[in-house]
């Protein structure tokens, strides 16, 4: 979590995923969506920010036999790019959905990892038109043999994760999702960032942000 200023407004730290970690530097990829990210975007090089982390869990490593599918929606690409980098030797398949072509990032970065992402946009301005979960379903998951030995990793908006969870449940594919929630403390005490699971409320900052999609109760 990052504190974007020293004053009282905004008051709380902002949670971010780690986009890259190299040579001791942590890189964070974000889109300006509100006051916090607006202030952050105006920070000059060399500014000092208070940071707390890393917090919570991580994507579980896939077993050796598994074929890996990564699914990113919008800014969910930030942590999935990092995961793709870590798993590049395993030749992961990358599905990437966004609203418009402007919001599709890191395509060349993925290419340099040897990954050609399958892209879809809501308006069809890049890649296929429509949502990425139906693109994934139609292009890869037809017939029982095609679903064998797969493992899914995803990060993106809740409707996308919900649709992916429904699909992976139906096809019996293990699926790990990184979820978002409003957060105050980041260390498990405020109980603000809970997600409903079949084993009760879990804290995104502590037990998450990565959950098995079939553990989550999707309303």
């Amino acid at each position: 979590m990052l504190s974007v200023n020293k004053g009282n407004d905004p008051l709380l730290k902002r949670p971010f995923s780690i986009h890259q970690f190299c040579n001791g530097d942590i890189k964070i990829l974000y889109r300006v969506v509100g006051k916090g990210t607006e202030i952050l975007s105006n920070c000059s090089e060399g500014s000092t920010l208070e940071a707390l982390g890393p917090l919570g869990n991580k994507f579980p490593a896939p077993s050796k036999k598994k074929r890996i599918i990564l699914v990113a929606g919008g800014m969910g690409v930030a942590p999935l790019f990092y995961l793709a980098e870590k798993l590049k030797k395993r030749g992961p398949v990358f599905f990437y959905g966004a609203r418009t072509a402007d919001e599709v990032l890191l395509v060349s970065g993925l290419r340099s990892l040897g990954i050609i992402p399958t892209i879809s946009t809501d308006d069809g301005s890049l890649g296929k038109k429509g949502n990425i979960i139906s693109v994934l379903n139609k292009s890869m998951l037809q017939g029982p043999e095609s679903c064998e030995n797969l493992i899914l990793y995803a990060c993106g908006p809740e409707p996308m994760l919900r649709a992916l969870s429904r699909l992976s449940n139906k096809l019996n594919i293990p699926c790990n999702v990184s979820v978002e929630q409003h957060m105050a403390c980041g260390i498990g005490t405020c109980l603000g960032c809970i997600v409903k699971t079949h084993k009760g409320h879990k804290r995104v900052c502590r037990e998450g942000p990565v959950f098995r999609s079939d553990d989550i109760v999707w309303d």
Binding site: D9, P10, L11, Q181, H182, A184, V195, G200, H201
Partner: peptide, 17 residues
């Protein structure tokens, strides 16, 4: 068990929970 999420929201110089 408490309430369903969202449970917190930031407000000017404060937060609602």
């Amino acid at each position: 068990e408490g309430n369903p999420p969202p449970r917190i929201v930031e407000t000017p110089s404060g937060m609602l929970n």
